[in-house]
Amino acid sequence: MNRPSQINNMGFYKTPVCKALMFIIGIPSLILNFTPKLQRYFVYSFSDVTNPLKIWKLLSSKLVFLDVTDLVCGLIILYYFRIFERRAGSRKFSSYILAMVILCTSLEVTFLFMFKFAGYDRISWQPGFQSVLMSLFVKYYLDIPRTGTTQVLGVPFSRKTLTYFMGLQIVFSEPMNAIFALCGIFMGILHRCNVFGIQQWFTIPQSVAEFFSSTLGPVFRSNPPQPLTQPMGATQEIQRQQRLELLEQQMLLAQAQGFMNQNHQRPLFRRRQAFRRRNTHNSEQNQPQAEAASSQFDTDNENQAQQHPLAPQPPEDKIVQLTDMGFSRSEVLDALSVTDNDVSMATNLLLHE
């Protein structure tokens, strides 16, 4: 197995939505912490919900953290969670954020009405971005493996432990934050289980995604990470973090390669990729030669394909999920076909080929 090049994965490469959210949430929150008189525009009460002229407060209250500690923890958690945008693609991740904003706000307003009927009609709510972050903890718990586990006084700690602690800090910083957290976790579970087809309710149209990509994309798009040219970190903690990141990359690559070797499909995948590049070059020079090369390629691989049949045609949603990450459709089809339509395996394969 070839050792993957050690890269600096700090940054927002392929995560423009998370980068935009950091600015949209962080800058207004900092301003509001120095201008308390403006904070009333970012909280709402029962009277605001029933007043059509103040319904906009439901949205404004989602865009800020009015507590400095919650702001710092929230931005760090959002930075950690940028991995979900890399895996799903910006369009799908944006659709998820939109769904959680609408669904969590609806549930929070329901709780507000319940408090009203219970006699607590003077409550002002400032849910902030907490409920959306808490919904992402469902994905974080189920999809991100534990790595670098250590024992402290017999209690296991991993790289995920700090993220959970920061989430708890937000939850218990204010009494009402626990309600907002429960709303987020509940909606995150519903979305995860796709109850009532909830995942299809909120999907950003492709045309809208392309519009924002062309207008705001250049502003929030980041350059690819560069290989590290400096020695590893000066402190033991930084070195440990870098080694764990490199180990995680090696584990993902080994998992993908093991799957490929087990199914005897990796040589065929590489030959397909090389053929596509060669055929594209030939087609620009001599179309008859390109057609002859295509026929020869199909003949050479007929026996191998019969011995190790590929997976059936992958579902369109999986194809879109990978093409949204920047891969071409032909590469996505090849990767899915040799990994039995496993999106995670196909992603690892495409990233390391």
Rank of each mutant, 00 (worst) to 15 (best):
R91F: 10
L112G: 08
A99F: 11
F113G: 08
F111P: 00
F93E: 02
S95T: 05
F113T: 09
K92P: 00
V109H: 05
F113M: 14
R87G: 02
T110G: 15
V101P: 00
V101G: 00
T105S: 15
S90T: 14
Y96P: 00
L98Y: 07
R91S: 05
F113D: 09
A88T: 08
L103K: 06
I97G: 01
F111M: 13
I97E: 06
L112R: 05
Y96K: 04
M100E: 05
Y96L: 07
S95M: 08
F113P: 03
I102A: 14
K92G: 00
M114A: 14
A88S: 14
R87I: 07
F93K: 02
E108Q: 15
I102G: 06
R87S: 12
I97M: 13
S90G: 12
C104M: 09
M114L: 15
T105Q: 12
A99D: 01
S95F: 03
L112E: 06
V101D: 02
V101T: 06
A99G: 08
I102P: 03
G89P: 02
V109Y: 08
R86G: 05
Y96E: 07
L112V: 09
G89N: 03
F111D: 04
R86W: 10
I102F: 12
T105W: 11
F93C: 07
L107W: 06
M100A: 11
S95G: 12
V101M: 14
G89H: 00
V109I: 13
L103N: 02
C104G: 12
M100V: 10
L98V: 14
I102K: 07
L107P: 01
K92T: 03
F111G: 05
M114T: 11
C104Y: 04
E85G: 06
T110R: 08
R87D: 13
S106H: 11
M100R: 02
R87V: 10
R87T: 09
L98C: 12
R91C: 07
F111Y: 14
R87H: 13
F111L: 15
F93D: 00
A88Y: 02
L112I: 10
T110I: 13
S94G: 14
L107A: 13
R87K: 15
S95Y: 07
T105A: 12
T110D: 09
S94F: 00
V101H: 04
R87Q: 14
M100N: 06
F111S: 11
T105G: 12
S90N: 13
M100G: 01
R87Y: 13
E108K: 08
T105I: 12
L107C: 09
I102E: 04
G89D: 00
V101L: 15
Y96D: 01
G89M: 00
K92Y: 03
V109M: 10
F113L: 13
V109C: 12
C104A: 12
I97K: 05
A88P: 01
F113C: 13
S90E: 07
E108A: 13
R91M: 12
L103Q: 07
E85N: 07
V101N: 07
S94V: 04
V101S: 01
T110C: 13
T105Y: 08
G89T: 01
S106W: 14
T105C: 11
F111V: 15
